[in-house]
Nucleic acid binder design. Structure first.
Length: 223
DNA sequence: AAACTATCCAACCGCTGTCGT
DNA sequence: TACGACAGCGGTTGGATAGTT
């Protein structure tokens, strides 16, 4: 049996109060992010470290862009999802001010329905089967996985965390700074990849990190 | 106005990857 | 090499709110 991440009897659960938020903000402004496990005690919070981290990342971070998603953002999410599957943190990393939770919720509540309505296969032709139990090895199509023979480097999501941890594979991957999907969702074999750029025979990737740029350019070309 | 249903989203849970010892 | 601790991720849940009957 797995050990609980914290003493259940001593922690508060559920919605955060304003006071708790303020304590967390104050503490992080003073000491910075990191050491989530010891943070609650140090900050005087009766919360689990995980909960503090989530609250900060998903709600309190000053660089968050609140409010509804724009059409451009939605479009980018759809295209990134077709490429990356349910890898919300990677997708969110390309949407400035958005969190993985926000993107995931938006996908589940808006986009998925929309796509189903439209009868598109995008919901099922994603990089992996969302129904499958999540397993990191199963999240990216083999050809997308970085290894010695396949050194794609995806740009890491905008991490605010503890930089001393070595980057994971996900973070090492870098959807090249200039990518767009013009050729549909089908990924094909025979991929040639190199640092900062890769190409797929039938998949012209040009998803630009700058949202405005990416969408702007695409709209231009659509006209 | 009340009851019921649908939708949204914040938060939780459990799992995996990485690091330090 | 093995193991425990920690951080991060994605799936799921449950409460709040909006919409409908």
């Amino acid at each position: 049996m797995r050990k609980p991440c914290c003493e259940k009897t001593e922690i508060t659960k559920g919605a955060w109060s304003k006071q708790e938020d303020q304590k967390l903000i104050d503490y992080i402004q003073k000491h910075g992010e990191g050491c989530w496990n010891s943070l609650p005690k140090a900050a005087g919070l009766r919360r689990c470290g995980k909960s503090c981290r989530l609250r900060w990342i998903n709600y309190l971070r000053p660089d968050l862009k609140r409010g509804s998603f724009g059409e451009d953002e939605e479009d980018l999410i759809i295209r990134l999802h077709a490429l990356l599957g349910n890898r919300w943190s990677l997708i969110a990393g390309r949407l400035p001010g958005r969190t993985d939770n926000e993107v995931k919720n938006y996908w589940n509540s808006h986009i998925r329905k929309k796509l189903v309505k439209m009868g598109t296969t995008a919901t099922t032709s994603t990089a992996l089967d969302p129904k499958k139990p999540h397993h990191r090895d199963n999240k990216v199509p083999l050809l997308m996985q970085p290894d010695a023979r396949n050194p794609i480097l995806f740009r890491p999501p905008a991490k605010t965390m503890d930089q001393k941890r070595a980057p994971k594979h996900d973070d090492e991957m870098d959807v090249s700074d200039s990518m767009s999907i013009n050729g549909g969702n089908q990924l094909q074999t025979g991929v040639i990849m190199s640092n900062k750029s890769f190409c797929l025979p039938d998949l012209n990737l040009d998803l630009t990190l700058s949202l405005q740029l990416a969408v702007g350019e695409r709209h231009q070309s659509d006209i």
